[in-house]
């Protein structure tokens, strides 16, 4: 999911100084699991013209009613700092962690990839799926559904390989991310 802003001509009001090159950062946002909280987060990105490159959200602590939103965003480092502060301003937000700043976070995505075909293409698809350690979770005489977990670039690569072999459709979860080592995000 991408919320892009049209590239506007440089304005004399906008700061030409100190805008560095864009970077991609992954933020972990811990929120109260209450109605409308996702709309607040997503609405903030669109209202302020920030990008969302990937977004996943689900409850992570049932008793405490906590959800974790993992959002990947792209922008200059000062824009990403601004994203973090704006998120922290939302009342139901407990904490925002820039996993990219903390270094070498583990990022994974799950994809389900449907491939239809017969003969050599089918054999080749199955062989590649095996090479990528994808699981076959549905099979008919004319199709497979593969389940694949890994970094986004690995999934991209797998999907590209499946394209000439009868790719039908792809469902991806978006990125879930967690920092390495014993500490929790925060």
């Amino acid at each position: 999911m991408t919320v892009q802003t049209a590239s506007a001509p440089p304005s004399p009001y906008s700061s030409a100084i100190g805008k560095s090159n864009p970077e991609t950062h992954t933020l972990a946002v811990l929120v109260d699991n209450e109605p409308g909280v996702l709309a607040r987060v997503v609405g903030l990105f669109s209202a302020r013209g920030f990008n969302i490159e990937s977004l996943t959200v689900t409850e992570v602590a049932h008793e405490a009613h906590l959800s974790r939103i993992t959002v990947q965003t792209r922008g200059a480092p000062e824009t990403i700092e601004q994203v973090r502060h704006q998120l922290e301003r939302l009342v139901p937000v407990h904490q925002v962690t820039d996993l990219t700043l903390r270094g070498s976070a583990i990022e994974r995505e799950l994809a389900m990839v449907k491939v239809a075909g017969r003969g050599d293409a089918r054999v080749e698809a199955l062989r590649l799926a095996d090479a990528f350690r994808a699981r076959t979770i549905d099979a008919t005489t004319g199709s497979f559904v593969f389940e694949l977990t890994g970094r986004s670039d690995k999934i991209d690569q797998f999907v590209e390989l499946m394209r000439p072999l009868g790719l039908v459709e792809v469902a991806r979860t978006g990125i879930a991310a967690i920092g390495r080592g014993p500490e929790a995000a925060g």
């Binding site: 700061s15 700092e81 601004q82 922290e88 301003r89």
Partner: peptide
Amino acid sequence: RLDAFSPGSRKIHVDIDPSSINKN
């Protein structure tokens, strides 16, 4: 005009809202 705003100064910003600091 921001790129000509107080060009020679050092700036201190006191604000209760962290998102106001370094925003503009």
